[in-house]
Design a protein around this nucleic acid. Structure first.
Lengths: 149, 149
DNA sequence: TTTAATGCAAAGTGTTTGCACTATA
DNA sequence: TATAGTGCAAACACTTTGCATTAAA
């Protein structure tokens, strides 16, 4: 069990919740996946281990509230990904409208520019930004290649 | 009836759909509102005019497909706003996590910077961006003031 | 007149909740 | 051992769909 895992366990306890075997199993899946998962996807992975669907919903809501995961919503479906201890403080998602794949835009130079832009918005509008959901929609490199062939 | 309205009517016809009284009524509400509306909000405004809920769902799906409206999804609920002929080609939404109000970030300087950043992502990742959903989450100026008092 | 679009109600899908039971602290 | 958390099924909220009817072209 690694350090990050242990400190999440500690956080759950500190907030007054019990660290149940279900929470551990779900958390392990989030660590393994290291990408956004839907409740249904998590359920498919853990149903054999006697974890009910309602528990996953409840757990993901709890994890979102205490800041363990980040929720992004696409076409009415929620995707969750580990937020704490992530190397990426903010990141940009891209959805291909052709193959519906969701990919992360992984480029720290762009992230930094984006964070600067957020700062600018904060000053201009006199507000505070805690978080950002950015979903770009377009055609991914694979689908572009295929349409040329 | 203004020019924009007429060209949307023309577009619907050109795409092979009928311009029904229901589509006209819904379109009028979108013009009046000039802000994101949910299906339920539209329904409350038009139910007295004999427009059914299912028709609004069908119409909003059609309008989204042919590019008349833009759909943004917040916590699983879809909001629609007129897209065509809008002065703003892209715009950034902000949701206050305290009062849950959604506001538009209206600043063309920021929009231009954002569009440039999109160009950069396109080149970096070899993809094409058609559209962007940007939702910033934080505390709005009003709630910030109130929490100081 | 033809047939796309509508209204209604039923079905579908993702999520939440009440309650008896289980297991953590 | 006390009570938060769970599994299950029922309830919920938003959305889609089948079908008879209506109205646009």
């Amino acid at each position: 069990m690694n350090e990050e895992f242990l400190s999440i366990k500690k956080l759950i306890r500190k907030k007054g919740y019990r660290f149940t075997s279900q929470k551990r199993i779900i958390l392990e899946e989030l660590f393994n996946a290291n990408i956004h998962l839907t409740v249904q996807e998590i359920y498919n992975k853990v149903k054999s281990k006697k974890v009910g669907l309602a528990t996953i919903y409840r757990t993901m809501n709890l994890f979102t509230t205490i800041g363990i995961v980040k929720e992004i919503n696409v076409d009415g479906i929620s995707y969750y990904e580990l937020k704490m201890y992530s190397k990426k403080p903010l990141h940009i998602h891209f959805r291909c409208s052709q193959c519906n794949r969701i990919i992360d835009i992984d480029n720290s130079k762009i992230d930094i520019k984006y964070l600067k832009l957020n700062k600018e918005i904060e000053e201009d509008q006199k507000l505070e930004i805690f978080d950002a959901n950015i979903m770009l929609i377009g055609k991914c490199s694979k689908c572009r290649k295929n349409s040329i062939l």
